[in-house]
């Protein structure tokens, strides 16, 4: 009789811990903002992976480092500076790869390294905000402010609405850009739209997982969903759920195990990828 009582006692302690955990306002804010950002990242990420533009997220996150440094340097709220700067950078990547006889990955490399270099120079010149700036390298969603929660939800909703409105055009231009043009899809506009939406998504993700890990949020849920999906809409849904669960589990485990939140979210995503990869190897 002793064992079941001990188990029940253990479960009730865990339940109490979880209930207490969910009552913290910083946890609620992290769950709320994290859920929106997770879904947006997974949706955009699927388009980026299928367009072979996965690393644009990495490049833009490095630009956001420079842009946040710029904001801190001039005493502005960093995200208000980062949003326009990263959007301009995404447009710049698109245009130099189209017009300047430079491959997309090289264009990303240029913009990315200039972003980091700018951030380092500003940090060195100021001597005052290094701690603030470097906290953005690995993010911390548990320290998210009310303004950042609202900003995350509003911007995520804008991205979701735009993806819904242009869903078929995005799908067509991603599947076969040339054919899409013959059906009247404005592919140049769609390319700019994807670049801008990626810029917004990257900025939102920086607070969650940090500059260094943003691309994981864009890439991992998408490639995990691609292991199993045979339909685009299914891939989008699957990618969203994987991303959402990874964020929720990542935040929870990081709290209880006292580990960095951003890194735990990425590891949860990677765990899902490994599970689907092996599932496919065994059952396909």
């Amino acid at each position: 009789m002793k064992k079941p009582i001990i188990i029940l006692f253990g479960i009730s302690i865990i339940n109490m811990e979880i209930i207490n955990f969910l009552q913290y306002s910083f946890v609620q804010k992290a769950f709320l903002a994290g859920s929106f950002v997770a879904v947006v990242c997974s949706i955009l990420g699927l388009f980026l992976v299928l367009r072979k533009m996965s690393l644009i997220g990495d490049g833009l996150s490095h630009v956001s480092f420079g842009a946040i440094a710029l904001g801190l340097f001039f005493g502005f709220y960093p995200f208000y500076v980062a949003i326009p700067v990263v959007m301009i950078a995404s447009f710049f990547i698109l245009k130099i790869s189209e017009k300047a006889k430079i491959y997309g990955d090289a264009a990303i490399g240029i913009v990315s390294s200039v972003g980091i270099a700018g951030g380092v120079i500003l940090a060195s010149a100021s001597n005052g905000f290094n701690v603030d700036l470097f906290s953005y390298l690995f993010g911390n969603i548990l320290a998210i402010s009310n303004t950042e929660v609202i900003l995350s939800i509003v911007l995520s909703l804008i991205v979701m609405i735009l993806v819904y409105v242009f869903y078929w055009d995005l799908f067509s231009a991603t599947f076969d850009e040339e054919y899409a043009k013959t059906t009247g899809v404005k592919t140049n506009f769609i390319n700019i739209l994807i670049a801008f939406l990626t810029a917004i998504t990257v900025i939102l993700s920086v607070k969650m997982v940090g500059v260094m890990l943003v691309s994981a949020l864009l890439i991992l849920p998408a490639v995990t969903a691609l292991q199993l999906s045979k339909k685009f809409q299914v891939a989008l849904l699957m990618s969203s759920f994987i991303s959402l669960f990874s964020v929720l589990l990542g935040i929870t485990f990081s709290f209880f195990l006292d580990l960095p939140t951003g890194a735990m979210i990425v590891m949860m995503n990677f765990l899902f990828f490994c599970l689907t990869f092996f599932y496919r190897k065994v059952f396909d």
Partner: peptide
């Protein structure tokens, strides 16, 4: 122009 890993069904 077709991407072999693209998860697009025939109907889509």
């Amino acid at each position: 122009n077709l991407n072999s890993i693209f998860p697009a069904s025939v109907e889509e």
